[in-house]
Simulated scan of single mutants.
Amino acid sequence: MLFRQLEYLVALARERHFARAAQSCSVSQPALSEAIRKLEEELDVPLVRRGRSYQGLTPEGERIVLRAQRILADRDALRDEVGALRSGLTGRLRIGSVPTASGAAALLTSPFCAAHPLATVELLTDLRSTDMERRLRTFELDAGITYLTDELGDGFQTVPLYQERHVLLTSAVDELADRPTATWAEASRLPLCLLSPSMQGRRVIDEVFAEAGLRPEPRVETDSVAALFAQVRTGRWASIVPYAWLHVFGVPHGMRAVPLVEPSRSVPIGLVISDREPTSVMARALARTARQLALASVLEQLPGASPE
């Protein structure tokens, strides 16, 4: 059995298409198909349901893919470990972030890169929390930045980073703009643009509204926090955004960021890595960087960080 055969099987399970899997592995489709066929012969079990097109993996194939993902992750971890012993940390750190936390991600990746100049970072910032958890379990990511809530499953180590709170982002001419705080009830009566309902960041906002007995109906919904800022900039809409995003944009000209109260609510955001042993050397290094940071204190200095 060769690592290459396992890589091809994992790629096929991920892409669900022979041609795309071959392209992702930089080989021809016949070469990928033949390697998987030989793996089936060696294991003496069918792995792929074949037809005129890809029909999915057999039950045996699904089980073996999980093993293959673990074997390949351990191989990569071994390479990184040896490389770190020889010349310092090298390789690629893969981080996923929920959109609401991606504005603060640079506060973590920048010191990591400074501490490990030979390492590179790939940051995916548009992942839903469920997608991130799945990619961490299948070793497609080394770490994630997400909500530390009961929705997070077992099998992870966490490093708390900061508490997410929300501000009302509105036009400077709105009657609430010059107030020190605004209530969620007052915000609910404005023409709102919010994150999409499928996103955990939106579910957090909906829970706060529900706690106050409110159910606003936004006219515009999006999967991008940056798009919320763009919508408010038109002067037509108001929005509710995580205050940590003010680290990226500040409070743009013509807008105001007003802390929200009644109720006051915060949700922990943190770094998440697999709890498996041995832990990826990349994940360990990032967790060490996160523990050394005072990220929360940096964000607390932003306007809208806490009600006055």
Rank of each mutant, 00 (worst) to 15 (best):
Q163V: 02
P252Y: 03
R189F: 08
P303V: 06
L271P: 01
M199V: 05
M132Y: 05
P252Q: 08
L93V: 09
P259M: 10
L299S: 01
E221N: 07
I64Y: 15
E151Q: 11
L47R: 03
G61Q: 10
A238W: 15
A212H: 06
P46G: 06
D223S: 15
L123H: 12
L195Q: 08
E34Y: 14
G88M: 12
G144M: 04
E207N: 08
P160Q: 02
I205D: 00
E122Y: 06
V258Q: 00
F249D: 12
Y54V: 10
S110P: 00
G304M: 12
W237K: 13
E140L: 04
L295E: 01
T90D: 09
L176H: 12
I36K: 06
T125V: 04
I36A: 03
E34F: 13
L168W: 03
A187L: 09
P111Y: 14
L161W: 02
Q292L: 01
V220D: 04
Y54G: 02
P111H: 11
T289L: 00
E308F: 05
D80W: 03
S264I: 11
L108V: 05
G201I: 08
R134A: 10
D80N: 04
L214M: 11
S306Q: 06
A182M: 06
Q231S: 08
H116N: 10
A68E: 02
L228R: 04
G56N: 08
R276N: 04
E175I: 11
L302W: 10
L192T: 13
V267F: 07
L194D: 07
L78H: 08
A104W: 00
G96E: 04
S297C: 00
M132F: 00
R179L: 11
Q163L: 14
L127A: 02
Q55L: 11
G61E: 07
Q55R: 15
R137I: 06
H116P: 02
A287Q: 01
R79I: 13
G51T: 03
D142C: 08
M132T: 03
L293H: 01
E41L: 14
Y162N: 01
R52Q: 15
Q163S: 12
A13F: 01
A305C: 08
A13T: 08
A287E: 13
T125W: 10
M282Q: 13
A21I: 09
V248I: 14
